[in-house]
Design a protein around this nucleic acid. Sequence first.
DNA 1: ATATGTAATTGAAACGTTTCAATTATAAGT
DNA 2: ACTTATAATTGAAACGTTTCAATTACATAT
Lengths: 322, 322
Amino acid sequence: MPTLKDLAKKASVSVTTASYAVNGSSLITKETREKVLKAAKEIGYRPNGMAKNLKKQKTETIGLFLSGFTGPFFTSMMEGIHEVVMSRGYEMVVCASVDRHRLLIEKNVDGAIILNYHMDDELLTELASEKLPMVVLDRELDHQHICNITLPNQAGTKAVVDYLNSKNHTHLGFMAGSEESYDGEMRLKGFLDRARELDIPFNRDHLIRADFTEKSGYDAMHTYLNKNEIYPTAFLCANDEMAMGAINAIKDHGLKVPEDIAVTGFDNLSISKYFNPPLTTVHVPKKQWGIHAAETLFDMLGKKENIQTSDLGVELIPRDSV
Amino acid sequence: MPTLKDLAKKASVSVTTASYAVNGSSLITKETREKVLKAAKEIGYRPNGMAKNLKKQKTETIGLFLSGFTGPFFTSMMEGIHEVVMSRGYEMVVCASVDRHRLLIEKNVDGAIILNYHMDDELLTELASEKLPMVVLDRELDHQHICNITLPNQAGTKAVVDYLNSKNHTHLGFMAGSEESYDGEMRLKGFLDRARELDIPFNRDHLIRADFTEKSGYDAMHTYLNKNEIYPTAFLCANDEMAMGAINAIKDHGLKVPEDIAVTGFDNLSISKYFNPPLTTVHVPKKQWGIHAAETLFDMLGKKENIQTSDLGVELIPRDSV
DNA sequence: ATATGTAATTGAAACGTTTCAATTATAAGT
DNA sequence: ACTTATAATTGAAACGTTTCAATTACATAT
């Protein structure tokens, strides 16, 4: 691997000049630059990113840290983030991990967007700093260098309860995800609160736990139906994937959706409208969410004062599954 | 940001000892190690990844370079890669880019898996080396430090043609993706070749181009149906997403699937079996593909001789869309 | 007490850049 | 021709680690 020193020798200039040439500095003449660039091509010189980062003390890379790549939910959000990051001339890396990721703890990124319930609050508050601002999407953290951008989860399930209520569904069930998920628990909370507010009785027997995947939704609903012969007229699910699994289980059990049991989801995945039956759900502006997160992060990097983190709106999408 | 020097001072040891302590070397006594670790906690020391990488001349990170995050196809594959990478104690970063990505060209990764038709062959062959082996998934490149692991695209569409033929479909149409996609073009080639082999006449009027997304599939089929009043009895689509779009367009046009037009996909996305009608498609072992790619890359990193790249199998999944 | 071997610690160089400060070359003004 | 200003080039330090080679500390054997 040729280094800048090799390049300098090849072009018979100093290392400094070589550096200026490859970085397009205006301090040197056009001729020297061209001479160096030509030599660079000849020996196949490529700058070494590690050295560059070390010297400049920054990477111009922002990291998105997820708990996993599974599921169709994240892709729109990533697109949103990616668009913003590119437009600012930065690079983006997506990392999945359990509790920690070397790129984050060894400061290999200039900023981070976190959507990873495996990472605990302590690690994040410890790591966040002027040099490593963060936007967290899956919790609320009070820290000078952390911004929270959360989804309107509670408002979402509340809207669903209201909608179902208006359709005279007064016996409700809820399929929740993992208890570790902030978003999931907020959705559950919105549901419970609203049910209480509307005096809709809710029995914990009709609270099912799954893990946000279609399969887990199927399995959980399957077991549930085998155990209970009396069931609600409508089931709210904490996300679309589980809702689809639940609907498939209900159908396989010989019941009809929505006639016997209505089912609602949350997220409004792009495929949900093509499901059979098309899924009533809460639209989550995933891409917008990503854009907003990234823009906020760049505001922090730019040391902007008074960073605004506007709320995302809720929209119920009524379809045939109710 | 406290450095190793700060840590050494705080713990009243040399920089070397501090380094040994944080890296768990057995050259120092238990007591000194503990003393240093305690000091590290106190001042909040974190090793600087950039310096580490520079000195060690490696990152223990492997990069997956994609053309975009869009679409549900990649997630299973990423999971496969990720599993392998983690099991080897490496980190994985996923990068989307147009023609180049700084992390790749500045050697910020120890190895790369490429699935990005935007990157041209020249760049890749120039970059691949002993220190940066690559596995490419979307083309075939002959280079000492590049392994190709491609999908059984041609075999896939050939199987579909055979299947449709056995169902007496002799008027076929094909919805292809972007011409830049190797996989897409191979799928098309398999189709064309097999049709010729079976003496099934094919008219280029029934070759539609879209760009692999559901929306583009819908639009393309919509325009097609408005233009042609005579159409094939079956349409092969180069992937499932376009197939779903095409089916929706056909339905919106007042025709029935599969009665009026049968439609097949390619990929077997997890949602495809729940589509209405369930999609006949070719199963692509996406996760297995990822695992195989990552394992091959580690074989290269380990300078293993005689690297085996076994082929992936094809499996036609008959469902109601035919 | 002295030599000998091993364990623990340390100093200093190196990794490949960037960039400040210093130097040299070139042009312009008298 | 000589100063002065500006442009172009360069030397050297620094970024924060790792690790080789050298040193010191300590125990054991003579």
